[in-house]
Design a protein around this nucleic acid. Structure first.
Lengths: 193, 193
DNA sequence: AGATTAGGGTACGGTGCGTACCGTATAGGG
DNA sequence: CCCTATACGGTACGCACCGTACCCTAATCT
């Protein structure tokens, strides 16, 4: 028979199985029994590594996503911002994003878990990308220097997130992205002069 | 013994019991068995009225909140906006708001439920309040007429919501509210001229 | 009064989390 | 090279909860 797996090898097998379950059935469908069965082991081996289902879900999500951060450079602030939002919208509306959102919902009342999700979802690097985008716009003379501010940089993504929280599952229509850029983000940047 | 309750009287008793459970234990703690026991009835009577737990939770939440919408008139746009945010922050960080947030988390992947929650949480009237606030500012000459726009009006509340989604349970510090108003909302209004 | 409707009591099936127990293979030390 | 501590496999269990099925009884309607 196949040799009995141990340690890191078994851990990878479990994470892989959990990630597959996440992709196929989402977080609510990722059952401990199913993960154990799929990994060819038992729940014992899982609970020896993660204290509860949520922890495994978060760890497995990282296995699922490679998260190449976009860094568009279209030449205009409007184009850059729109491209960022479109990329984020595509990610969030994919099955991938559905997993992330169900994970977020499940961890909503546990700050520690919330931190883990945020850390693994690349939100921080995203904020930095928006800041450098603003700096480029300043260098082009397209925006006042005072527009380079963390809260300004974070605003469009926050609006997109809120839009997802309001609506149900489907993706946010492109009109809304354009509106966020033209009616909020650009006026906001201009208004800080 | 006490006469057997029926119809509307029983319905109110169930809703009252469910609301109490919501307040004491939050939505995850609002068990069907506990609600039935507290209302002095059984699950049968509940499932004859609501198809599942979430529906009861949403209906009970309405019973919990009377939602007197604030409509501050401090004389300045800054003051009005800050007051609105502070009221919302107080509501959302109260046990009351914890219930609403756990309800939202539970309904996150069911658009129909999401609509119900939104409807009963007074989000729409909130948006209208922000619009009239903007109109008053225009009348005072404090803002350009083009600032009266649904998305502009909705922006501060959306940022607050996103802030709650990011952090865990506690309330959002007042600094953040001030920052939203001063670094985002007011520049945005000014930038639309 | 007789028939219909709605509550009360209770039990059950199903699912899922997390734990316990016990035998066995594997790694690592004497 | 054996021997022991550790980790895995298998399985069963306790527990909590949702939602449903019966059967009996009180209230309401005609």
């Amino acid at each position: 028979m196949g040799a009995r797996r141990r340690g890191e090898e078994l851990e990878r097998a479990i994470l892989h199985a959990a990630a597959e379950e996440l992709r196929e059935s989402g977080y609510p469908g990722m059952t401990m029994d199913r993960v154990a069965a799929r990994a060819g082991t038992n729940k014992n081996a899982i609970y020896r590594r993660w204290p509860h289902r949520a922890a495994l879900g978060i760890a497995a999500y990282r296995h699922l996503s490679d998260a190449t951060m976009p860094n568009p450079d279209t030449g205009t602030l409007r184009g850059d911002a729109l491209e960022m939002l479109r990329q984020a919208n595509a990610t969030w509306s994919s099955p991938h994003g559905a997993v992330l959102r169900s994970l977020l919902a499940a961890a909503a009342d546990d700050p520690a878990l919330l931190d883990l999700v945020r850390e693994r979802s690349g939100a921080d690097t995203m904020d930095r990308a928006w800041l450098t985008m603003l700096e480029r716009a300043v260098a082009r003379g397209e925006a006042p220097p005072t527009a380079v501010h963390p809260r300004v940089a974070a605003t469009p993504m926050m609006l997109l997130r809120a839009e997802y929280a309001m609506r149900g599952i489907p993706s946010v229509p492109d009109d809304v992205l354009i509106e966020i850029v033209e009616e909020v983000f650009l006026p906001l940047v201009r208004g800080r002069g």
